[in-house]
Amino acid sequence: MLYTGIDSKDRQVQNLVVPKNLSDPYLREWVKYKGNPVINLPDGTKRDDFRDPTTGWRARNGIWRTLVASVKNNTGVAFLYRSADFVIWSYFTNLLEAEKLALLGLTRNIFAVKGMHQRMGNSGLLDCSFWHPVT
């Protein structure tokens, strides 16, 4: 699972945590990945404007994806990252851009619906849902 943390330079970064015991049906204990952070603050992004990763999802091609909310150049942005192994992540594209701060701090979920992926905005600032095919 990905979560927002703070690095030694007081910047928001995305970290990985894994279940300590996969045989525990409730997954009550988690362990931080020793190689954290797995996603660093992008260039041009303020140190406290990079947070709230989505639950990772696997596209049809087997590649993991996640969105991270941010603000860049006074515009709300959802950065799309991808990974083959859920550990090594690379920037892919800016999936969404909106008015200043409109995307920052959203709780987002991605799930498969009839062969497509749907992203649901869950905020009073961005009250929308739309379809986005992921290939």
Rank of each mutant, 00 (worst) to 15 (best):
Q14M: 09
N36K: 04
G115K: 04
A98E: 03
I88G: 07
A102V: 01
N15D: 07
K100W: 09
A102S: 15
A59L: 03
M116A: 13
W57L: 05
V113T: 05
N73D: 11
T54F: 02
S90W: 06
L22G: 10
N109W: 07
P53L: 00
P42K: 10
F92D: 00
G124P: 02
K72P: 02
F92R: 09
V87F: 09
N21G: 14
I63T: 07
K32V: 05
V31E: 15
Y33F: 02
M120N: 05
A102I: 11
L104Q: 13
K32P: 05
E97C: 11
E29G: 08
R82D: 10
L96D: 03
A102C: 11
T54R: 02
S123I: 00
G105N: 12
N94W: 00
D52Q: 02
N61I: 06
W57F: 06
L106S: 01
T54A: 03
Y33K: 01
N61Q: 13
N36M: 05
L95W: 08
V87A: 14
L41N: 04
D85H: 04
G121I: 08
T55V: 14
L67N: 02
D43W: 09
S70M: 01
A98K: 00
D24M: 10
L106V: 02
T55I: 00
F92N: 10
M120S: 11
V31W: 05
G105I: 12
T54E: 04
R58E: 14
W64N: 15
S70V: 12
L22Y: 11
N109A: 12
W57M: 01
F92I: 07
L80T: 02
F86I: 08
L103Q: 04
V18G: 05
F92W: 09
N40R: 06
R65D: 04
P53A: 04
K9S: 14
A102F: 06
V17D: 10
W89Q: 03
F111P: 02
V31I: 12
N21Y: 10
G35K: 10
K100G: 14
V68Y: 03
E99L: 08
P25T: 07
V18M: 11
K72H: 14
D85V: 11
T66S: 09
L16P: 03
V87W: 10
L104E: 05
R60G: 14
W64Y: 10
P37E: 10
Y91Q: 06
P42R: 05
L106K: 00
P53S: 07
Q14H: 01
K9H: 13
V38R: 01
T75S: 14
F79A: 01
